[in-house]
């Protein structure tokens, strides 16, 4: 058991450092009830920052778009934003793992992200890949990284500007380059052996009910990603990720989220908890909800998820609907 990881680092003290153009707590009063409100920004807040010239340039906010569809950014994106592709930029091309410290530093520097930059991430599909990118940045300990509530869909639905202009960014180099910081997986990432050791503790399966019960081996309407067995990890609660989201893709209120995760499912913010899905993207969304909106102390995302567990030899599998 790792010593109580401080996943909430940016919420304590960082607001007083002063020189940043944005006060973390000032994003939107609607977020105030969340455990770490500085982790979310509204579309209006972002539009205001763009209007005020606060996006891009030295010391500016860096806005990144991370989508399931690799071409979506190229069809038009939020002015000043840059593409961060989960597959091309964050995954190692050979090993099933994330990029290493040097690759990550290069990806960040190329986008003008410094270690102290405020980064806002948004994307398609209810911010799944945006949440996933935020989680990967958290593995590297980037402190100030936030999600755009409602993601790309909300921005578009509000008729806000999208552009095909790709900003020219001077890559950071020398002293201002992103530092080579080793990934620290242990606090927020679970591997298969960690899950085996955790059996009996709280687990959240965020896949669809059919995947949970074992009737389906992949999410509805999605490609088959090859699992030999269907079902779920024994003892896992079934809380499909979408239950945390409103119709417009924004997150539900803290009160509504507590009703689901605490009262209904009996999870506790003080317990070490593991979330998983199929490949780790939907569970990044739930990881964000539990960690940053509800203030759970120690949530890990099991990114191997069902594509690993459902193929592993002799790991325990449970089938059937939630009890």
């Amino acid at each position: 058991m790792p010593e109580s990881p401080d996943l909430s680092a940016p919420s304590t003290g960082s607001a007083s450092t002063g020189s940043a153009p944005t006060e973390p707590a000032s994003t939107d009063s609607a977020f105030a009830a969340y455990a770490h409100p500085e982790r979310l920004v509204s579309t209006q807040w972002l539009a205001d920052q763009i209007e005020a010239g606060g996006v891009g340039g030295p010391d500016g906010i860096v806005v990144l778009e991370s989508d399931e569809d690799v071409l979506l950014y190229d069809t038009g994106h939020i002015p000043g934003s840059l593409k961060l592709d989960w597959h091309q930029d964050l995954n190692d091309p050979v090993l099933r793992d994330y990029v290493d410290a040097e690759q990550f530093a290069a990806v960040m520097s190329a986008r003008g992200v410094g270690r102290d930059s405020t980064v806002v991430i948004y994307g398609d599909k209810n911010n799944w890949w945006a949440a996933y990118a935020l989680w990967v940045m958290s593995l590297f300990g980037h402190e100030d990284v936030r999600l755009l509530d409602g993601g790309r869909a909300k921005w578009s639905a509000e008729g806000r500007e999208l552009t095909r202009d790709v900003p020219q960014v001077a890559p950071l180099a020398g002293d201002s380059a992103y530092p080579v910081v080793e990934r620290d997986d242990a606090p927020i990432r679970a591997f298969k052996d960690d899950v085996l050791a955790h059996l009996g503790g709280p687990l959240v399966d965020v896949r669809s009910p059919g995947e949970y019960s074992g009737e389906l081996l992949h999410m509805p309407d999605y490609p088959q990603e090859g699992a030999m067995r269907g079902g779920h990890i024994p003892g896992a609660k079934s809380v499909p990720w979408a239950r945390a989201a409103n119709e417009d893709g924004t997150f539900k209120s803290r009160e509504d989220l507590e009703a689901i995760y605490l009262q209904e499912q009996g999870l506790s913010p003080a317990d070490a908890t593991i979330a998983y899905c199929r490949i780790g993207e939907r569970s990044s969304h739930t990881w964000f909800v539990l960690t940053h909106l509800l203030g759970f102390d120690a949530v890990r995302n099991y990114d191997g998820s069902w594509t690993e567990w459902g193929n592993a030899v002799r790991v325990p599998v449970e089938q059937g609907a939630p009890k």
Binding site: D69, V70, L71, L72, D74, T75, D124
Partner: peptide
């Protein structure tokens, strides 16, 4: 759909 440009491609 237009929001799936890769698939459209």
């Amino acid at each position: 759909p237009p929001e799936a440009p890769t698939t459209r491609g």
